[in-house]
Each structure stands twice: as structure tokens, then as C-alpha cells.
Simulated scan of single mutants.
Amino acid sequence: MTTHRPPAELHDHPHDHDHGHEHEHGHEHPTGFKGWLHEVFVPHSHDAADSIDDALEASGQGIRAVKISLVVLGLTAVAQLAIVAISGSVALLADTIHNFSDALTAVPLWIAFLLGRRVANDRYTHGYGRAEDLAGLFIVAMIALSAVVAGVESVRRLAEPQPLDNLGWVLAAGIIGFAGNEAVAIYRIRVGRRIGSAALVADGVHARTDGFTSLAVVLGVIGVWAGFPLADPIVGLLITAAILVLLWGTARDVGRRLLDGVDPDLTRQARHALEHLDGTSQASDVRLRWSGHRLAVQARLHLAPGTTVAAADQEAAAAEHAIRHALPAVGTVDLTMTADAPATAGQERT
């Protein structure tokens, strides 16, 4: 039995085909109110089920999403800063500074998208796609920090109640903060899913946690107006719990990427596409992994005995086309072609 690997140009050939098909989900999500809660608290990346196929276009959309969200968050913080100037609230000033600093956590992701566009070299032979996953890990750490800060502050205010001043201004700042952060969260998560970026989805979740913090301020003010001054720290503890739920889902998605985990449905789709080629009797060692928002695919194809090298090359081209047609966001495709010689034959064939 001889292993035949197609020429290098077949491994990373772009195959300029028009992929106008839809990639189907192999799993279902809850619907109704339960589905809405699932969407808010566990907004996973769907493993790029709806992602676009061109790598540069995907990176460009990611960079554009980071730029736009930075502008929106900047305007949100500036609006809060104006309220601080009018009200003179020191607490609001601290929250505004916090929002400014959180907006800057998108910068590492911006850098990661730029690095991901660089070509592979002798040192980084697989390219720089992993920079995006490292940025996702940094964002997870920031979400964890937000949960710790929110929890500690809520417990402190519960133990040492402090009166809230300028309630009207505090309410206005909280509403602005929640609206701006939630708008950015929805946008980042949507684009992250479209381009297959778990890190961008995680950054959207980070914006959502900041929005939840601002929402806690709004609910706390309403509680104080209703004659329940402890509403502020109690709501803060509830928001901390919500952030922890978001943290779990985000850490799971980013962790799976770092451990080369993929949605099993993608593996099954790849195997199905390869095993239904005309000249292929079986596909084995089908392996997928993410590098940033691109899928790398490896597989061994077992061809019919006596298959010629030319026929194997044609089969490799057909197999790569089938992979790119069946899966979203495919980067490199590495195929090993094997032709099994008959048991009675005493010679090797390719």
C-alpha cells in the first residue's frame, strides 16, 4: 500500500467557485422565552455556521466591527462624562473611567485581526491565526475581572450602605451606558458569528457584561426611589451572577478553540462530503481545527486499487472542492490519497 499525496498546489488552491449555498445547523436551540434567555446568556459562536468564505474579507469585517464598536463605546463614555460634569458625581466618574478602559480591550483583538492577515513564514509556518485565540483568552480574563469587581463592590455596599446622590443623573448615565454597550454587544456577536470568530463573540459578551453593570445602576436607582435602599447592592449581586453565566459560556467557546475543538457536526459534514466522491471508497483520519476564524482540514482518502497518479490528482481536486462547498470558512485543505493494492498483487501501485 502506497500513500500518494497530491501536489502542493492542490492543498491550498483557492478554487474560485461561487459558494451560494447555505450551511445547515446540525443542532437546535431553544425557542421562545427560553431561547431568548439562551441567546442573551450563552451567545456561542456557532463554529462559523454562517461565516463567509474569503479570509481577507472576514478579517476586514472583523476589523470594521472593532472600529465601529470603539466609536460607539467612545461616544457612550463621552455622554456619561458630560453627565458627570453636570452632576459632579464622583461615583459616576469612576464608572465612566471604567467604561473607557473596557472599550480599549478591543485593541488586542484589532491587533490580532491584523496579524492574522500576515502570511506564514519559516518561524510561524501555520500563520498567525492563533493570535485571535490569544486575544479571546485575554477578553475572557477581562470578563472574569468584571465579575470579581462587581461582586466585591456589591458586597461592600451591602455591608456598608452608602446613599446615592443625584439619582436622576445616575439613572440617565446608567441608561446611556446600558444602551451603548448592548448595541455594541449585539453587533460584535453578530459579526463574530458571521466570520467565525470566537474572540469577537467573546468581546461582544464583554460589552454585554458592561451593559449589565449599567443596568444594575438603573435598577438600583429605581429601588431607592421605591423606598428600598438596599436594592442597589442586591441587584449588583444578581448582575454578578449573570456575568458569571456569561463567563462560563465564553470561556468554554474560547477554550475549545485553544484545544483545537470543533463542532462535531462540521466533522461529520466533512466526512460525508469526502465519502460521497465517485472515486473514494472511504475517508479516514478526518481532522479539523480552527486557526483564528479559518478552518484547517486534514484527511486520508482511500481510493480504488489501481488508481493512477493522474486520477488521484483529479480526485484530490474534487475532494477539496467538496470540502469547501460543504464547510464554511475553510482555509487550508491537506489530503493524503491512498490506493490499496489487491491482496494477490506483489507490487505497489499509486
Rank of each mutant, 00 (worst) to 15 (best):
S154N: 07
Q347H: 15
G180I: 07
L115S: 08
H27A: 12
S101R: 13
I63C: 04
D253M: 04
N99T: 14
V66Y: 02
G196F: 01
R252A: 02
S89C: 06
A199Q: 05
H13I: 11
G88D: 02
E57M: 02
I52G: 14
Q80N: 09
L246A: 07
Q314S: 09
S146G: 06
L93A: 11
V184N: 02
V90Y: 08
D47Q: 00
V235G: 08
L114H: 13
R157I: 01
S101A: 14
L258F: 13
D265A: 12
A55T: 07
E348F: 11
D12P: 06
L115G: 05
L75H: 11
D278K: 14
L134P: 13
I175P: 02
H44L: 06
G60E: 04
P163T: 14
A241K: 00
D340Q: 03
A85P: 01
E182M: 06
G211K: 09
E275M: 05
R324I: 12
H46W: 00
A251I: 09
R349K: 02
Q282E: 13
A273P: 08
G292F: 12
A179C: 10
R188V: 02
E22T: 13
A91K: 03
V221A: 00
P305W: 06
A185D: 06
V148R: 13
F113R: 04
P229C: 04
T76L: 09
Q61C: 06
S146L: 08
G32E: 06
R190D: 05
L303T: 07
D165C: 08
I176E: 03
Y128F: 15
G192R: 07
L158H: 01
A141N: 09
G192V: 01
F113S: 06
I86G: 09
D16L: 11
A103V: 06
A183S: 13
L134M: 14
T350V: 15
A106R: 07
G261H: 01
A48E: 08
H272Q: 15
V170A: 13
L171S: 05
G192C: 00
T336C: 07
I176L: 12
S214Q: 15
L258N: 13
A345F: 04
R252M: 06
S281K: 04
H293P: 10
G196P: 06
A326S: 14
V201W: 08
R194A: 08
A310F: 10
H302I: 12
S197C: 08
H38E: 15
G26L: 00
G331N: 00
A159K: 04
T240V: 10
L238M: 13
G292E: 10
A310R: 09
S281N: 03
G306P: 00
T344D: 03
E39L: 07
G279E: 12
A339Q: 01
A103W: 03
T105V: 04
Q314K: 13
D53K: 08
V330L: 02
G255M: 01
A273E: 11
L73P: 13
S146N: 12
V191I: 15
W36A: 03
V235R: 09
E182D: 06
T307N: 00
T96E: 04
L295Q: 05
I195F: 10
A65D: 01
P229A: 05
